[in-house]
């Protein structure tokens, strides 16, 4: 190749317009694994989600198939705009219904000029439809409002390299009522999550949620997740090992009843299956 053609390419290099280039696929999924990531799906995209957790009850002569306990959160999450997502779901075992709004405030730019981080605001509300059982005992159940809890998060993330992304999630949780006087109604927590892409379609993810003021009436532990995400075509699968037993923020952040280890009763296996439907297809 002659020198001149290279000169022509160099000339073209200067012709690129100065349009900002934003990072994509900081986490790829709208959840790191269990908790929300900064990602939103684009406008007109519906995610059909089945999140599952399985665990055993210790010292029990169990005849259950595979696992003693199974809970699933079935949810629909829709991109109202490229930056705003609305979602609602229900969890089977604890009977919790939740709805959320998620708004992407700042997008990380690839060039040095723009924002070095992405910020997404998250707000949910949850309702405990059961009066007792998993995750429900710490609330009063006299009227509708008593059974609600609200989680606000500021999700802050940076894609450091094409492989590695990190997120911190300052979290505020408000429970509308407490069955026990010693329990705080407001909790502060800090989530830390990371993704490491190991192949074109596979990444390893981890999350940890530190509670600043945990519940006092029961022993709770910080939620931890170690998982693998498999992202392909219209289907995303997320596998996880965790100690959490709920899939709604206020439950797994403040009410995880045991620490993370591999013994029966503590170990929880989970997987999320997300099917992505595009209702607003562009004509290329």
């Amino acid at each position: 190749m002659s020198m001149n053609a290279q000169d022509l390419l160099d000339k073209l290099e200067k012709e690129y317009p100065n349009t900002p280039q934003y990072e994509i696929a900081t986490f790829k999924g709208t959840r790191i694994s269990l908790g929300h990531s900064i990602e939103n799906r684009r406008k007109g995209v519906l995610e059909v989600k089945a999140m599952n957790l399985f665990w055993n009850i210790p010292n029990r002569p169990s005849q259950s198939f595979v696992a003693d306990k199974w809970t699933a959160r079935i949810a629909l999450e829709y991109g109202i705009s490229d930056r705003l997502t609305f979602g609602a779901g229900g969890s089977t075992l604890d009977g919790i219904f939740d709805g959320f709004l998620k708004y992407n405030l700042i997008r990380q730019r690839k060039d040095a000029k723009g924002a070095p981080i992405s910020i997404t605001l998250f707000q949910n509300g949850s309702y405990r439809s059961m009066t007792s059982g998993l995750h429900s005992n710490i609330n009063l159940s006299d009227d509708f409002m008593d059974r609600t809890a609200f989680t606000s998060q500021i999700l802050i993330a940076r894609k450091f390299t094409p492989q590695f992304s990190l997120q911190v999630s300052p979290t505020f949780i408000h429970r509308s009522s407490s069955a026990f006087d010693e329990d705080p109604n407001n909790h502060f927590a800090l989530g830390i999550g990371a993704r490491y892409k190991v192949g074109g379609h596979i990444s390893i993810v981890s999350e940890y949620y530190y509670q600043a003021n945990p519940l006092k009436s029961i022993d709770t532990y910080d939620a931890f997740v170690l998982g693998v995400n498999w992202e392909m075509s219209d289907l995303m699968l997320q596998f996880q090992m965790t100690n959490a037993r709920g899939m709604v923020e206020d439950t797994f952040i403040t009410q995880t009843p045991n620490n993370f280890n591999l013994s029966d009763g503590n170990f929880v296996f989970g997987f999320n299956a997300t099917f992505v439907l595009h209702f607003n297809q562009k004509q290329p």
Partner: peptide
Amino acid sequence: FKKSLMHEH
């Protein structure tokens, strides 16, 4: 792309 997720993949 027709599908925004395809653009990401």
